[in-house]
Computed example of a mutant assay.
Amino acid sequence: MFFVRTASERDLEKVRALLVETWHATYDTFYGVEKVNELTGRWHSLPALKARLERKDAEFLVADDGRSIGGMGYASMSDTQTKTAVLHQLYVLPKLQGQGIGRDIFAELETCFPDAERMRVEVEPQNLHALAFYRAHGFSEVGQVSNCGDEQSGIPALILEKPLA
């Protein structure tokens, strides 16, 4: 059984491995191995993960069963939009998907930003599993971007939002 808890620096190697595995399983067919290697190298490096862990207006969670990390989530308050929390990452190892780990991480992240009125996430349009997950959890489409994550990514995304209670 996995328990959701705040990530620590000792988790970062396992989180990086989870992200690399999950990204290859999800995005290789869309973008190819080389592009996924480039993005995971930039976005999921240990220094990048450590910077997220240290951010003050953010929450970095892992799902831990005492032996392994099965999922992770990272969200922060928006730098550009008031009263908006941004869900940057929510990933579960492919072999563990469908067991409620993502749901449990997401449920915890929803409660971490008491001043937020909405949560926003960017989702690759071809990632039908992620789109179904977010729609089932109350998100709806509000826009699109052509460079998800950073201005050089070349990855299009749908912008989804959900009102927070």
Rank of each mutant, 00 (worst) to 15 (best):
A132L: 08
F106G: 02
T84P: 09
L164V: 04
I101W: 07
G41R: 10
G154E: 09
V121Q: 10
S45M: 13
Q152C: 02
L53R: 03
P163R: 13
C148S: 15
A7L: 09
T82Q: 13
L49H: 06
T22H: 03
R55N: 05
V142F: 01
A107E: 15
L160C: 08
G138A: 02
T22C: 10
E54G: 13
L49W: 06
E54A: 14
L128Q: 15
I69R: 01
I105W: 09
R5A: 05
R55Q: 13
L131N: 12
L49S: 08
T111M: 10
R42F: 15
A165Q: 07
A48M: 12
W23M: 05
P94F: 04
R118H: 01
C148K: 15
D79W: 00
Y91F: 15
N147S: 13
L109Q: 11
Q97N: 06
E108C: 14
R135W: 02
G102A: 11
A165P: 13
A17P: 01
R10E: 15
R42V: 12
D65M: 04
H137Y: 13
G32R: 02
K50W: 09
R52W: 09
A85F: 05
G138Q: 04
V86L: 09
D28F: 00
D79N: 08
A132E: 14
R16V: 12
V123L: 08
D65P: 05
P47F: 13
H137W: 11
E161T: 12
T6V: 09
H88N: 13
C112Q: 15
G73R: 12
K83F: 11
I155N: 10
I155Q: 14
R52F: 02
G149L: 07
E13P: 06
A75M: 05
Q144T: 15
S68M: 03
S78E: 08
Q81I: 06
K162D: 03
R55C: 03
A132S: 14
A51N: 11
A17L: 13
V33Y: 00
I105K: 11
F60C: 04
G143L: 08
L19R: 04
G70D: 06
P47N: 11
D28R: 00
V36I: 13
E13Q: 14
K35P: 00
G143R: 05
H137T: 03
A7G: 07
C148I: 07
K83Q: 14
G102M: 11
K162M: 04
E21S: 07
T26P: 05
K56E: 15
R103M: 01
P125G: 09
M72L: 11
S76E: 15
H88E: 11
F2T: 03
T111K: 15
G70K: 01
F2V: 06
L46P: 12
L39K: 08
S140W: 12
T82A: 09
S68R: 10
Y27P: 03
F139I: 01
A17G: 10
G154A: 07
P94W: 03
E21A: 09
G100I: 11
D79Y: 00
E59K: 10
V33M: 00
L131K: 14
A58K: 07
T22R: 01
